[in-house]
């Protein structure tokens, strides 16, 4: 069944300060939505609030994935329900190898006694790493420890490929990537496109969208989606920047919290 993801009236605060001021968004399996916007407009906050980062408090709203409200679930339950967030700043965890970590993640989706066999897991992981042109030694490296920015991003995509989620949020997956790495990552994402899977691609550059073609584009400012359209919206933003949007909507400062 095609995943349906509906965010309604989502508000969230950090340290008592409201950052998200009512987000509404509907996505279906097979669709790619892009969220664009300058820095500091609440894009990562949206991603983090959906995933359940402990620093963010959701004060209002729902986020239904196939009818189930993710916001009612613990972080791990959201993941097992099918949400995946490729983070802007993935954590480094010393002493935990990439392979032990990913195997635990896969097994968390399986019943006890039905864990993936080590051989099968390693084969899968090696195959995906090859697609992403990652050195096989990354299997045994400690999770993200000492990885370059680009290696961390590839590792996020690797996890996405291994975990087969229904809704994928990519938060600034293009930052820190050179053009070749960007192409590899985009190919990885495109290979995962399917009618069962929806993507929410967060970026403040249009560049990424040349490689991952969105069906819908949303502009975020001041903690809200202020404008939505098709791929042509991204192209206009690329050509003209964000100023015209601000003028059109009468926004002086697009970042969150400045109006207070």
């Amino acid at each position: 069944m095609a995943a349906e993801f509906v965010i309604e009236g989502l508000k969230a605060t950090i340290e008592g300060k409201e950052i998200l001021k009512g987000i509404n968004l509907q996505m279906k399996g097979g669709e790619i939505h892009a969220i664009m916007g300058p820095n500091g407009t609440g894009k990562s906050t949206l991603a983090s609030a959906l995933m359940g980062h402990p620093k963010y408090e959701v004060t209002e709203g729902t986020a239904l994935l196939e009818g189930e409200d993710l916001l009612e679930m613990a972080v791990d339950e959201r993941a097992r329900a099918g949400l995946f967030l490729a983070m802007q700043y993935p954590s480094e965890i010393s002493g935990v190898t990439n392979s032990d970590f990913l195997r635990s993640a896969i097994n968390s989706r399986r019943e006890e006694g039905k864990e993936i066999s080590l051989i099968k897991f390693i084969r899968q992981m090696e195959a995906k790493m090859k697609e992403l042109e990652m050195n096989p030694e990354f299997l045994h490296r400690y999770l993200n420890e000492g990885f370059s920015g680009g290696e961390k991003k590839r590792n996020e995509i690797l996890q996405m490929m291994m975990l087969d989620p229904k809704i994928v949020i990519l938060d600034e997956i293009d930052s820190g990537l050179d053009i070749d790495a960007l192409k590899i990552v985009a190919e990885g994402v495109n290979a995962m496109r399917s009618p069962e899977r929806g993507f929410l691609v967060i970026t403040h550059y249009q560049r990424l969208l040349n490689y991952i073609k969105p069906d819908f584009v949303h502009v975020m400012m001041q903690g809200r989606i202020v404008k939505s359209g098709g791929p042509e919206l991204a192209e206009r933003l690329e050509a003209e920047g964000y100023e015209w949007v601000k003028e059109e909507l009468g926004i002086e400062d697009e970042t969150v919290g400045q109006e207070a």
Partner: peptide, 29 residues
Amino acid sequence: NPEQIYYLMSRGISRHDAEKLIIYGFLAP
């Protein structure tokens, strides 16, 4: 580190298992 727990949990790993991974990771070297 709660940030690390969050990261592991965001991949579906339970809090209990996430803590376990981090603790063993700490002793692993």
